[in-house]
């Protein structure tokens, strides 16, 4: 299974990854609807943090509906049909890599498709075996 891995030191904060992700997941270019998030370490800094799901699976046992599950390819996926939008998985994510948006009834979660890595101009994110 390949997942998104990061080299934050290469990130220039262009947000192309977030736009690519939201476009893949929700057909819009809106960083607030992205499953990968880039933010400055602090306001004054030129350094960035990158938060993205590492498919650890800690969101699976906490889900009441069985919406979070391990797919055949071992990535952790969210079945939107089963999900009732409780956001326990968001609160319980050890990497803070699940998100919400009021237009969307379920958490926003990485599906390890790699579209963000393809959009990244600096190599700060890339696909690699877990």
């Amino acid at each position: 299974m390949k997942i998104v891995k990061t080299r934050p030191e290469l990130c220039n904060g262009c947000m192309e990854c977030m736009l690519a992700c939201s476009k893949t997941l929700y057909k819009v270019e809106d960083p607030e609807k992205s499953a990968i998030r880039v933010k400055k370490v602090d306001k004054k800094s030129d350094e960035y943090e990158i938060h993205v799901c590492d498919h650890c699976g800690e969101c699976i046992p906490v889900c009441n509906t069985g919406a979070t599950y391990k797919a055949n390819n071992k990535t952790v996926r969210l079945d939107r049909k089963k999900c009732v939008g409780c956001y326990i998985c968001v609160g319980f994510c050890p990497s803070n890599a699940l998100y919400y948006h009021s237009d969307i009834n379920e958490p926003i979660k990485c599906i390890a498709c790699g579209s963000c890595t393809r959009a990244c101009p600096t190599g700060a994110i890339f696909m690699e075996e877990k």
Partner: peptide, 22 residues
């Protein structure tokens, strides 16, 4: 679904919810 209860401001509820989940 998360909006079955017809809330006026879902964002407010989600924010409080995620905070206490954490």
């Amino acid at each position: 679904k998360g909006d079955s209860n017809g809330p006026v401001d879902k964002q407010k509820i989600i924010k409080a919810g995620i905070k206490i989940h954490r």
